[in-house]
Amino acid sequence: MTTLADPIQTGTTPSPPQRRSHRRRSFGYPRRGSVWSYGALLAVVAGSVFPLYWSVVVSSQTSDAVTKVPPALVPGGHLFDNIARVFDTTDFGRALLNSFIVSGSITVSVVFFSTLAGFAFAKLRFRGRKALLVVAIATSMVPHQLGIIPLYILMADLGWTGHLSAVIVPGLVTAFGVFFMTQYLGRAVPDELLEAGRVDGSSTFGLYWHIVLPAARPAAAVLGLFTFMQAWNDFFWPLVVLQNNATVQVALSALASGYTTDYTLTLTGTLLATLPILVVFMLLGRQLVDGIMQGAVKG
């Protein structure tokens, strides 16, 4: 059920730009931010950024810095030494590669299949359409995490334990992706365009390929980046099923385990593992914020 609480599950459809409602009128609601509210918000943001900043500080210092009192508060010049040490200590390169393979395949597949199913649900007429859509959305309520034992038995029977396919295949299409694309395509693709395509003798898949897929591009980009972040951060199932063939989150947890943890090493690993997510967040943080807020209004 964590899936439900996830930002990505809340229904994030990029909408065409809307005219701003008459929010800024004479009375001026909402009120202008006071110095006090700016100050408080900056403190909150500082608290949000601090753990990340702290891992930058620790990972750029020598190992004794982490035990210093008072603690070091500015970055030093040893970041690259520490990064080299991470790659020497564990097969972090392999873990990063594994994560890119897993997240990349899941992303491409989720976008493709979600757009295909979204096209069917939004634009094609068939018996049972509404009921099937409701079922598809309801599946996102199923707490997958509690099914890991039979899922493990299944993967063992298939001989997939220790293979990346055990993580990739269950994630190839998501209920959220289908819902998201259904919402978007319903608005973004005019029926007349599809009718015209049919008159020209195009097959249904031809319509998908030549009309729907190009029109879906903006939403596909957002869905793709969301999916990538989620797959990249996934921890529990890869931990259970991949064993020695770790993804980056599993490798990170292994780096942190042990009687005495080398925190300089571990936090350098944390930084490396978080960097791709930060890049994605910089690219689409705005859409993510909009998506969560729209989902909340609808939800």
Binding site: P51, N233, L252, A256, T266, T270, T274, G285
Partner: peptide, 16 residues
């Protein structure tokens, strides 16, 4: 800025 903690992984957050 307020949303940032939510996109970092549980593993990274818990370790830090």
């Amino acid at each position: 800025g307020v949303l940032l903690p939510n996109v970092t992984s549980i593993v990274a957050v818990t370790i830090v």
